[in-house]
């Protein structure tokens, strides 16, 4: 779609939207958000970028093929369950590492890894479809 306004706006917005999507994903455990929502938002942002700048530009922006995101996402999702096995808990039991650093409380956890996996799969799935359609 050849629209200067859309293109300029999108180029500005894309970074904000992607950042916001990561923010939504990270905060998901405590507030509305999470991997599904973050992933959908990120995918929408890239899809918008693809509409504005053509899908080749979007592919360049993403750097990796979207199928790779699916693979990584699934690997993270499956892998997140193994932390529990190390601790002797059933597969996929949540494992938490909470510590204070630089005056902030950090919560690292296996569900977070899992949610990142969901995020990547959702982004990869949507973009695989959009790119495959755009390419034709």
């Amino acid at each position: 779609m050849n629209s200067v306004i859309l293109r300029s706006a999108t180029n500005l917005l894309i970074a904000v939207l992607l950042l916001f999507s990561v923010f939504l994903m990270l905060r998901g455990h405590d507030l509305p958000g999470g991997g599904f929502i973050g992933g959908l938002l990120a995918a929408s942002a890239v899809a918008l970028y693809a509409i504005a700048n053509g899908h080749r530009a979007a592919v360049r922006l993403l750097r990796v093929p979207p199928q790779a995101l699916i693979a990584w996402g699934l690997a993270l999702g499956v892998g997140a369950g193994f932390f529990a096995l190390l601790q002797g808990d059933p597969y996929l039991t949540g494992q938490w590492l909470i510590f204070a650093f630089a005056g902030v409380e950090w919560k690292l956890s296996s569900p977070l890894v899992f949610d990142v996996g969901v995020y990547l799969v959702v982004v990869g799935v949507v973009l695989t479809m959009v790119f495959a359609l755009e390419e034709r």
Partner: peptide, 14 residues
């Protein structure tokens, strides 16, 4: 048990 305040998300990922 799951350190999460968004129950929907906790159900999903945990």
């Amino acid at each position: 048990e799951a350190n999460g305040r968004n129950i929907v998300n906790v159900v999903l990922v945990d």
